[in-house]
């Protein structure tokens, strides 16, 4: 038959209002399912307080205005906030969306499933900022902590840390077949990199081999880079390589393996 209708029209793509609605939707999902906020906000606070109590001579200055506590605890806590959100929470949301075919539902609208991923990242970043703000408030009020001597460097490290942890999170989201397995893989990955990066005490206390391994993983590299920023020193090149490399590797693996359904 030749009488097929043809209604060529300009392609239309969802605009700013749709992005805003989707970000709002993702934020509401996170807020209303508030149990998911306990780990990224509560666990780092717990570690912060434990380190604050247990670190001997926490108030001793190791550089002008930088206490032992600020140097050891805050870099670990910031890295934890980012890692728990990017490596545990975000892949779990994506795995749930994939399992329930929510992404597939969006794929038949003018919105792309990739919009959900971006909205998730925006909401996650807001959580990161809140988590860090909360940790800083407790650290400043109760433990006389100090802000980094090189705040711009610290901000740059934070962005690199986010990119690296999201890279790792996307690998988890790509290889996890179910929401439960996503949480399991995310937790193992998180505790693996965090333990070697100084979450349970300064990495300097670990055997040398483990210290070396830890510094080549994103958590350890992030902690070392933040410590440099706290002292107002330049971040070591290796730290940038590890953080950047993790982000690139994560994007590559996700590009090859990530499934929307």
């Amino acid at each position: 038959m030749s009488e097929t209708a043809d209604i060529r029209r300009p392609a239309w793509r969802p605009g700013a209002a749709a992005w805003l609605r989707l970000i709002q939707a993702e934020a509401k999902m996170v807020i209303r399912d508030y149990a998911g906020l306990i780990v990224p906000l509560g666990l780092p606070l717990l570690i912060l307080v434990m380190q604050g109590i247990s670190i001997e001579e926490r108030g001793q200055e190791i550089a002008e205005g930088v206490t032992v506590f600020s140097y050891y605890a805050l870099p670990v806590v910031i890295s934890m906030v980012v890692a728990t959100i990017a490596v545990i929470n975000m892949p779990s949301f994506l795995a749930t969306y994939r399992k329930t075919k929510l992404l597939r539902r969006l794929a038949v609208t003018p919105a792309s499933p990739a919009m959900v991923l971006v909205a998730q990242m925006v909401v996650s970043f807001i959580q990161v900022v809140l988590g860090i703000g909360l940790a800083f408030a407790v650290a400043l009020i109760f433990f006389d902590a100090a802000l980094p001597l090189a705040p711009l460097t610290a901000a740059g490290v934070l962005l690199a840390c986010c990119a690296a942890m999201y890279g790792l999170g996307m690998i988890v989201a790509s290889i996890a077949p179910t929401p439960n397995s996503s949480v399991a893989i995310g937790l193992i990955a998180f505790f693996g990199i965090a333990a070697l990066g100084g979450m349970f005490g300064p990495a300097d206390n670990l055997p040398e081999v483990l210290q070396t391994v830890g510094s080549w993983l994103p958590f350890g590299a992030s902690v070392e880079a933040f410590q440099s920023a706290w002292l107002g020193e330049a971040v070591e090149f290796q730290n940038w390589v590890v953080l950047g490399g993790s982000a690139v590797m994560g994007a590559g693996v996700a590009g090859a393996l990530f499934r929307w359904e």
Partner: peptide, 27 residues
């Protein structure tokens, strides 16, 4: 309506409404 759902994806998404057999929404 004369459009290829793969090459004219953006246009087709505007004129097509789909209810899938199993699809969840933001709960």
């Amino acid at each position: 309506l004369g459009l290829d759902p793969f090459t004219d994806r953006a246009q087709v998404r505007q004129i097509l409404g789909v209810q899938l057999q199993e699809a969840y929404l933001h709960g």
